[in-house]
Design a protein around this nucleic acid. Sequence first.
DNA 1: TTTTTTATTTGACTTTGTCAAGCAGTTATT
DNA 2: AATAACTGCTTGACAAAGTCAAATAAAAAA
Lengths: 311, 311
Amino acid sequence: MDLKNQIAHIRRFNRNYTARIGLLEKHILDSEYTLTESRIMLEIKERTDCTAKDISEGLSMDPGFVSRTIAALIKRNMVDKTISVKDKRASVLKLTEGGRKHLAILDERSDAQIGGMILDLTEKEQQKVYESITNLNEYLLHEEKQDSRIITIRNELRAGDAGRLIMMHGELYKKECGYNQNFEGYVCKTFYDVLVHGNSERDRFWLAEDEAESGIVGSIAIVARSDNTCQLRWLLVLPEYRKTGLGQKLIREALIYAENMGFGKIFLETSNEQQAAIHLYEKYGFTIQRTYEINDWGKPLTGIAMEKTLS
Amino acid sequence: MDLKNQIAHIRRFNRNYTARIGLLEKHILDSEYTLTESRIMLEIKERTDCTAKDISEGLSMDPGFVSRTIAALIKRNMVDKTISVKDKRASVLKLTEGGRKHLAILDERSDAQIGGMILDLTEKEQQKVYESITNLNEYLLHEEKQDSRIITIRNELRAGDAGRLIMMHGELYKKECGYNQNFEGYVCKTFYDVLVHGNSERDRFWLAEDEAESGIVGSIAIVARSDNTCQLRWLLVLPEYRKTGLGQKLIREALIYAENMGFGKIFLETSNEQQAAIHLYEKYGFTIQRTYEINDWGKPLTGIAMEKTLS
DNA sequence: TTTTTTATTTGACTTTGTCAAGCAGTTATT
DNA sequence: AATAACTGCTTGACAAAGTCAAATAAAAAA
């Protein structure tokens, strides 16, 4: 991607977007209070213990201008001012009941406008808009991604999921362990086995998805291997989602299911490089049964078979 | 995804982004000419046969104000005005040499600013920014995606590619033909075969990528099946990229490679539902050798084996 | 304590934007 | 063709928004 091209693309977007948003904002905020007054009230509402300085810095306005505008708002009984306890030069600004009411009206109108922009989009398009905005927030504005990610887990395996899980395995194990494409090929085989020769009544997948992003962020599955024995497979959690308890949650779900389905034994296979996972498995009652050599994945590895008796 | 939440997300972005961009713009455009003057000159530059009305509408400014500002620009020799041939009330505005020079300087500065915003991003992040902006352009501003998509074809199969191709096959054939997951499982098997048991010297992949989007948009591969015979596999072009000649290009690349590698015969397998593909294959010299039943993919299909002799 | 810095205010501006009236040319209607 | 309605632009009179410099009083640093 050509840098020059990219810059032009961004600039064009900036011009159009700011024009559009500016117009909307103007249309909405311009009521009996001027745009600037409304913006200042908004700022007061958003900040705790807001001072005049906060506003002039936050909205990059002239301090004198801010001072005057606030004075006018106080006169019109939209804002209250009390001298700060910490610093007797400064005053803490608060909205009055009237100020809050006014903003509530603007809020509603603004919500309606934005709502109108995304209402006729399909769910998928809305998702894309959300993700795009998150990206720009992160990369252009350097805003922290808020941490309140909502992860949902679904059981149904949909078209493309198998491929995506293979892709995730291939990419991740390449990146983190340096495995070669034999490994991805091997994962293909495991999915072939379960999709074509599996037992759809007893096999089950758990796929974790982040509500704010498209795609799978974590997975696990139970595959029946005999009447009494099942295998735990494809435990994977994307790096960004580790240390959140997601891995444990997936294992717990899988174990509960395995017990409920009446399996007496559950086993899994991993390698000596997956120490974090092994500890997790041990925590949930798996013990190492045997080890073996793996030489196909680009470097010598020790395969580890673990097992747990179910009640 | 909660609508209320989404709206709040967008609004927060709007506020921050317009504030940021507005500040940048102000800083840059505010030279010896005021922001408004520069913006008007920009508008004149962008439009062909720009009139005062175009500007007042395009930038949503008061006609009177525009008139005065233009008069000032004319006086300072940045803009020329000639009475329109079509309408003697209106005047066509053009930039003078000086106007163009001035804008060129601003352009450079603006480019530098935007460049600064994306310079310390990784290639992948830049790609994400580009895509995000394209999305917002399309979904929020309803700008047409420009059609000048640049498609590049690479030969190297990277980690995750196999999984992605399986995913694409699974999703697409489900959506377009209603195939079930046995099909995706079957595709897994084919990738297992080539990744683990294939001949990396003779097998080859062509993966088409859109420069402006991440991910693969089309694929094809040659797999050696004997010394003399190879198979054409995984021809796929995403719906949005069809009718662009991409499919043909992929086939041609593959055929040229097959000939150069000294294969005497090339064959492929498809089904009766892939009529468009079959026509393409026939166009490139493939003929139907035999047909057979396929009953595993969710509905009865006729498998079709095609073959072509290579010189 | 003295000096410097900081948060705000005030006065004197300039720039930007708005509104209404008017003029000359264009289009529509009778 | 004559009239009316409309349109693109201009102008005057204002109002709003924003800037700059100086002043004040409290806080922080030397």
